[in-house]
Amino acid sequence: MSVWQRIYEEINDPDFVILSAAQDTGGEAVAGPIFDAANATYIQVVDTDHVISSAFNFINVPSAAWIDEEGRIVRIDEGTYAQLHEIGNDEQSITFGTDVYSPALKDWVANGADSVHVQSAETVSSNIRQFTREHLQANAAFRLANLFRSHGHSEKAERYWEMARELHPESINYFRQNLTLSEEGSAGESFMKLRGEYISQGKDYYRPLDIDL
């Protein structure tokens, strides 16, 4: 989040906003300190019900949409990392993310519709993920689960979280959100199994970025 804050300050345009939505059922206790550590001044939302992901048909985080002054989507649904990250140590490390996204974002804020990174309406439309009745119902089940959780009805919360998973099995958000609140965490054995399936099936965990700088 601190990287997004730096980018936001570098852009420093009163007609540009970042709405950053933490898809975290753990709520303020989990997401709040991360926002605070970044000294974030953009719009910060702790989105326990995954409202933003549901509205834009996102299935993974981080994902994003660029919306112009008229409310038109000009870019959507990519692995939206603010920079290249490296975790681990000198002996073992992995990198993830990209350094090309934020320069593209800055170019769009500066040049608007003339930016080469604004996608055609046709491309945007093809990048908007299709949704089904079951996907909508999954979010209703997820919201129901969160209501039960917040009132201490754990068995029912588990039941409807599972229903959401079954109704929208492609959603990595529901899958990993559930793991986050388990002993194994979001990057444990279950996640590694899922990731292995993606790799073996040649599927993209994120839609590849189509950005040339």
């Binding site: 906003v17 970042i18 950053s20 939505a21 994902s63």
Partner: peptide, 8 residues
Amino acid sequence: KALIVTWS
């Protein structure tokens, strides 16, 4: 202009 970004 708005960047709507999700994370967790």
